[in-house]
């Protein structure tokens, strides 16, 4: 049985690719695409009368296939279905890194899932607290309650919006400018940052519209998202490119972090690097840039 390493609550998650847990052809070699996380789906991609079969398939995939460094998250069925409890049991027993709560609308939803996860961890002898959680906001109510959802549990690593369901509730449709989702994205981002967790944008479903996809990913980055949900491996590369820092940003970040460490050792709080003022407030951002650069193969130093 494959023993997956302890999940990291905060790690790089630029790309999170959905795949149907019921389709062996998809999940058997999902790690080769190089996305940061894969999202094995027990929810909408699986037909109502195949939920049971998808769990058997998921269990054996989780325990047999070595996904390496790719994070493995499972999207479970909504709390208004008869499926979610067994979904949680199989995720925990199989050693999934995290669970995505579909249609999350309140802190109580997170706590309900958390209680079931803890019970499953005890049932299957898994360390209590190992299984991470993230929430998908799919309704106006979920977005309005974003902060209480984001801060509901120490297991929460992130929050994502689901565009299809949200637009349906709002009686809007996709708009290339992003105006249809602007408020929801903004509110969710602020809630996630206030709670100190990560934030992911929805999927882009028109696989033939490359320009539209790129525009949306660039807007995601400008708004402050950590990453994006994807439906096809061909979308991965662009997201990684857009989310990568520029060479100039990497050099500046490196200079800032090393200068800061030197200055701090000498008791200096504020100083300049290449003409720009630097103090402690800039350092977490610079360190994040270096970590991202490392993941993108642009930085090989040892500052992070």
């Amino acid at each position: 049985m494959i023993k997956r390493p302890t999940p990291e609550r905060f790690r790089l998650r630029r790309t999170m690719m959905f795949m149907n847990a019921q389709k062996p052809g998809l999940i058997k070699d999902a790690y080769i695409y190089g996305c940061d996380s894969i999202m094995l789906d027990l929810e909408d991609a699986v037909a109502e009368n195949q939920k049971d079969a998808a769990r058997f398939s998921l269990y054996h995939a989780l325990t047999t296939i070595d996904y390496g460094k790719t994070e493995v998250i499972v999207r479970i069925n909504g709390l208004d279905t008869p499926h979610w409890q067994e979904d949680i049991r199989v995720c925990v027993a199989g050693g999934a890194d995290g669970i995505r709560i579909a249609k999350c609308e309140s802190a109580q939803d997170v706590k309900t899932v958390e209680a079931a996860v803890e019970a499953a961890e005890k049932e299957f002898g898994v360390e209590v607290g190992r299984t991470l959680l993230m929430a998908a906001l799919e309704s106006p109510k979920g977005v309005l309650n974003a902060y209480e959802i984001c801060s509901a549990s120490d297991r929460m690593f992130g929050v994502a919006i689901s565009g299809g369901d949200f637009r349906k509730c709002m009686q809007t449709k996709f708009d290339p400018s992003g105006i249809d989702m602007l408020v929801a994205r903004g509110q969710m981002l602020m809630a996630a940052r206030a709670a100190g967790i990560q934030c992911f944008d929805t999927v882009f479903t028109d696989l033939d519209d490359n320009e539209g996809f790129e525009a949306e990913v660039r807007q995601n980055k400008a708004m402050g998202f950590d990453g994006k949900s994807l439906i096809n491996p061909k979308q991965i590369r662009l997201v990684h490119e857009v989310f990568a820092p520029t060479e100039k940003e990497v050099l500046q970040a490196e200079a800032m972090v090393s200068a800061f460490r030197e200055a701090a050792a000498q008791g200096i709080g504020v100083f300049t690097v290449n003409g720009k003022m630097v103090d402690v407030a800039f350092i977490p951002g610079a360190e994040r840039t270096l970590k991202l650069a490392k993941a993108c193969g642009m930085y090989e130093g040892d500052l992070v």
């Binding site: 062996p24 058997k28 049971d52 079969a53 058997f56 398939s57 008869p82 067994e86 049991r89």
Partner: peptide, 30 residues
């Protein structure tokens, strides 16, 4: 793959007993 064959055989047997929906012994006989 072997893991898929196992999953399909197990699911068919559990379905034949109408026990495939909940309370599966993950890590036990599965």
């Amino acid at each position: 793959l072997d893991c898929t064959l196992k999953a399909r055989v197990e699911c068919a047997v559990f379905r034949s007993c109408e026990k495939s929906a909940a309370g599966i012994p993950w890590g036990g006989v599965i």
